[in-house]
Amino acid sequence: MAYSVYGYLFILLNLFQSKEFVCEDTDNSIENLYRTRQYDTVLQEDYVGDLHWEKFKREFNKSYASTIHENKARAVWYENLAAIKHHNSLNHTFQLRENHFSDMTLRQYLRTIVKLVKSEEHTHNETLPEHLRKHDIIIPPEIDWRNSGFKPDIPSQRRCGACYAFTIAHAVQAQLLIAKGVWEPLSEQQIVDCSGHWGNYGCGGGSLRGALRYLEAYGAMSYKDYPYEAKKSKCRWDKRRVRAKVTSWGLSPRGDEAALERAVALLGPIGVSINAAPRTFQLYHSGVYDDHTCSNKSVNHAVLIVGYSRTYWILLNWWGKHWGEKGYMKLKKGHNRCGIANYAAYVVMDDKKI
């Protein structure tokens, strides 16, 4: 595990706090070490000490296996705070903030949270339904499906790589609302437990394609009947409790944000793959995300587009209210930023099933 020079200095300072290094006549609490050894010019004005660390642990329910593990996590947390303050001091279109990922290195975050599995090469038709391609259908310059009643509780996948399940369950839930006027939270856990045959790996990750193919075959149960557990369990699918059936699904043309915009306007919330690799994505808080290092060459996470404006997409993520704008992100439009239009899946519902 790699740390910057500040991280190593932090660990050394903690070692000097241990019993082997205590000097009885010296007040060497970590707070005084921060005050007297202001080695970080970014944070030296906003002193960070024991109280802040304890508050962070309480707020995000953090515990560690040992003092060594906690010291390492605290060093990472401190480095991330420095990165946050440095970023926010510059003229960016978006801001960062401490959240429940702040004690994770980028590598830990990617290995633990971001687990979208690469689908096989596209064999599915990449086009919108014919009636949506007609140019005489004018779409609005901006839309937000939350204003039409799509306001799910902000979910958290926790330490389970289930973004694929959350994305497709919520995409189908949105269609259930739009097509039938029915508000029925659907089960992510069912997809986690039962879609292994379609190439998914439970909490080890999965693909949008695998989740869609599974629901096309078996249908979706309600969240009430099959609640989320954040771990893979034995499949408990019950045909009698299926609440929604996917008749068919399709993909918006790869890389085409205009087609994606049309799909969101005329069909509803759309599930998309995205590149969540940058540290700025990990620590995003507010504003229009426009990190030029967020490549569109690869994707590793899945979210739901719930709307757009003239300049940004509105994304629902699965990382709880402490991430982003209470669970949402605004992402810059027009540059296929983070690969937002690389793999966008829309759903068609079975009119007979409810």
Rank of each mutant, 00 (worst) to 15 (best):
E257Y: 11
E257A: 12
E257C: 12
E257R: 09
E257F: 11
E257P: 09
A258C: 07
A258P: 00
A258W: 09
A259N: 10
A259K: 11
A259L: 05
A259P: 10
A259T: 06
L260R: 04
L260W: 00
L260D: 11
E261T: 14
R262V: 04
A263D: 14
A263P: 14
A263N: 08
V264I: 13
L266R: 08
L266I: 00
L266V: 01
L266M: 11
L266P: 11
L267E: 04
L267G: 14
L267M: 14
G268I: 03
G268W: 01
G268C: 14
G268N: 08
P269F: 04
P269K: 13
P269C: 12
I270G: 15
I270R: 14
I270V: 14
I270D: 15
G271P: 03
G271I: 00
V272M: 06
V272A: 11
S273W: 04
S273L: 05
S273D: 11
I274A: 13
I274N: 07
I274C: 13
I274D: 05
I274E: 03
I274L: 15
I274H: 08
I274G: 06
N275T: 05
N275Y: 02
A276W: 02
A276Q: 10
A276H: 06
A277W: 05
A277K: 10
A277S: 15
A277E: 09
A277T: 06
P278H: 04
P278K: 03
P278Q: 01
P278F: 01
R279E: 12
R279S: 13
R279L: 06
T280I: 01
T280Y: 01
T280C: 10
F281L: 07
F281D: 03
Q282G: 02
Q282K: 15
Q282M: 15
Q282E: 13
Q282D: 02
L283D: 02
L283M: 06
L283N: 02
L283G: 02
L283S: 03
Y284F: 07
Y284P: 11
Y284W: 03
H285N: 14
H285A: 14
S286M: 07
S286A: 15
S286P: 08
G287C: 07
G287E: 05
G287A: 12
G287L: 08
V288F: 02
V288S: 02
V288D: 00
V288M: 02
Y289G: 08
Y289F: 13
D290N: 15
D290Y: 10
D290I: 03
D291Y: 03
H292Y: 09
H292T: 02
T293N: 15
T293S: 15
C294H: 05
C294N: 06
C294T: 02
C294L: 02
C294W: 00
